[in-house]
Every structure is written in structure tokens, then in C-alpha cells.
């Protein structure tokens, strides 16, 4: 039974690696910017899963801690990227009264498609 679980873990790790390679291809070719953001975000998720499985394979429980840290960091990076494209600035508070300030938020009519 333990042996079978081991093989299942290894198979999962290989499949996750293939998925990471596919996402990498999307990230490199990605015609639009949002493809790239999505690819990076899912790549982070794949890495979290891969680390958890890999920790089981090599028999170290610490890998799960790192997987959790990855999930948190992935979230921070995604928020930073989205703020970058919505406000063209990173130091903006997400409070409601701040968002209503007309200087900082581009109106919907003048929303720009950043050429990337």
C-alpha cells in the first residue's frame, strides 16, 4: 500500500511538471497581457502543489510549510500586478474613500490598454 502511494506521488509530480511546462509555454508566447498574468498565477499554484507532493516523495515535512508560504507570496504578487495595471501606482490604499478620489483613479472612459 505504501509502495503504491509512493508511485502515485511520483506520477502526480510528473504530471504537475508537464503542466508547469505547458504554462511556461503560454507565459512565453502569451499574446495578451492577461494571458501572462493568468499563466503566472496558475504557475504559482502548480508550484505549490508540486512542492507538497515533492515533500512527500523525499520524505521531508518542511516542504508543506514552503508550499503555504508560496501560496501567500503568489497572492501578494498578483495583487501588485493588478494594482500596477489598474492605478499605475503601487502605494494606493484599497480603502473605499481613497478609491473615490478622482485624481488617482482613471475614469472608465479614459481607461487605457497598456501596450505590453
Amino acid at each position: 500500500m505504501t509502495q503504491m502511494l509512493y508511485y502515485i506521488n511520483i506520477g502526480t509530480a510528473f504530471l504537475l511538471l508537464i503542466g508547469m511546462a505547458l504554462l511556461l509555454a503560454r507565459l512565453l508566447s502569451g499574446p495578451t497581457l492577461y494571458d501572462r498574468i493568468l499563466a503566472v498565477n496558475s504557475f504559482g499554484t502548480k508550484t505549490v502543489l508540486f512542492l507538497a507532493v515533492f515533500a512527500l516523495i523525499i520524505g521531508r515535512d518542511d516542504g508543506v510549510d514552503i508550499a503555504i508560504l508560496y501560496a501567500l507570496m503568489n497572492f501578494i504578487a498578483t495583487i501588485a500586478v493588478l494594482k500596477f495595471f489598474r492605478y499605475s501606482a503601487l502605494g494606493i490604499s484599497l480603502d473605499d474613500d481613497f478609491i473615490e478620489d478622482e485624481d488617482t483613479v482613471p475614469k472608465a472612459s479614459e481607461k487605457k490598454e497598456t501596450p505590453i
Partner: peptide, 27 residues
């Protein structure tokens, strides 16, 4: 050439290398 794609790829690079560090036992 796109700087944004390069920044994203750098994030991916460090994700992959950290996974590799785990396999080297350097948690």
C-alpha cells in the same frame, strides 16, 4: 523585449529555483 513579461518570468524563475532548493535539502 517586453519588460512586464520579463518581471513575470523572474518571479517564475525564483519559484522554480526554490522548488529545486527544496529537493537539495536546503529548505
Amino acid at each position: 523585449r517586453s519588460l512586464f513579461a520579463i518581471v513575470m518570468l523572474q518571479g517564475v524563475y525564483s519559484l522554480i529555483s526554490a522548488a529545486w532548493f527544496v529537493s537539495l535539502d536546503a529548505v
